[in-house]
């Protein structure tokens, strides 16, 4: 597995190349507050003010945006290849994928422009392998057949969108005080709209129940859903809220999406990234 290697490259680029330009970015972005000051400290020395919200490696706005860009590259290429594959039935599936593809392309362009505008070199697009080393054949390139390929196209789309929602959420704290917070939230919401539609296209609910990946989802995608079973929000067990009967686990977990750490998001993405 090339996760470590990928993370290293990721982190080094941010730390080394980003160093002189990061100051520019902070200047460009205006008031960054505590996060920015912390991120100027070398990793080992930085201590987060509140351990509960401490993020993993790369807890600064630049790392957050670079991670977002990496995930958007992945989604953008996936939908491009899906639309070219001839696997998608016309009608609703094609309409849905075209709309999503348009947004993912826009997100890539937006994030590149934002990073460059802030004087930061955007991460390069990785080489993707959507077969995940031969486990899938979503574009029917290896003869798995249209039907299976289509099922995998939908399953991967669901996994990517639900990952995107969780990953952006996990980076929001790193963008606190940055001018990129609002656009990141706006992208986050779009990913959630995509996720809901793809899930419903697959016959699932648009929202995540417990930590269920849902019918027909490959076991390899379970990492996308682990942790979604949480019912303690802000220290409150939300099954016990109100004065009426307690809320079901289903409703209580569906009502809140959980965040994914940067490391976990990278681990999921790297299943589809070819190490150079």
């Amino acid at each position: 597995m090339d996760i470590i290697k990928f993370l290293d490259g990721f982190t080094n680029e941010t730390l080394l190349e980003g160093k002189p330009s990061r100051r520019d970015m902070f200047g460009t972005l205006g008031s960054l507050g505590k996060k920015a000051m912390l991120s100027a400290i070398p990793f080992g020395l930085a201590t987060m003010p509140n351990k509960t919200f401490a993020q993993d490696s790369g807890s600064d706005p630049v790392s957050a945006l670079q991670l977002a860009l990496t995930l958007e590259y992945l989604e953008d290429e996936f939908y491009d290849l899906a639309l070219q594959s001839g696997v998608l039935p016309s009608g609703r599936p094609e309409t849905v994928y075209m709309q999503i593809s348009k947004h993912e392309q826009a997100h890539v362009d937006f994030l590149i422009a934002g990073l460059e505008g802030a004087g930061v070199t955007p991460v390069e697009k990785p080489t993707f392998d959507f077969t995940a080393g031969g486990a899938f054949d979503p574009f029917n390139e290896n003869g798995v057949g249209q039907e299976t390929a289509y099922a995998q196209l939908l399953a991967l789309a669901q996994a990517f969108e639900d990952t995107g929602v969780r990953a952006y959420k996990g980076q929001a704290g790193n963008l606190l005080g940055s001018d990129f917070l609002t656009p990141a939230l706006q992208i986050h919401a779009v990913e959630a709209m995509h996720a809901s539609e793809v899930r419903r296209l697959r016959g699932l609910k648009g929202w995540i129940t417990n930590n269920e990946r849902g019918a027909g989802m490959p076991e390899a995608t379970q990492a996308v859903y682990n942790g979604e079973e949480n019912v303690v929000q802000g220290g409150v067990d939300v099954t016990t809220l109100g004065s009426g009967p307690s809320f079901s686990m289903e409703a209580s977990t569906e009502a809140y999406d959980e965040a994914l750490s940067g490391d976990d998001a990278v681990a999921i993405a790297s299943l589809f990234i070819v190490s150079e």
Partner: peptide
């Protein structure tokens, strides 16, 4: 979101807004 200063509240808002977006889509 930009009006929130406590990262815990920001995270909670994030947990809720994506569910609202899932609703909106449906």
């Amino acid at each position: 979101g930009r009006l929130i200063s406590n990262p815990g509240y920001l995270l909670l808002a994030g947990k809720i807004v994506s569910v609202e977006a899932r609703h909106a889509s449906a």
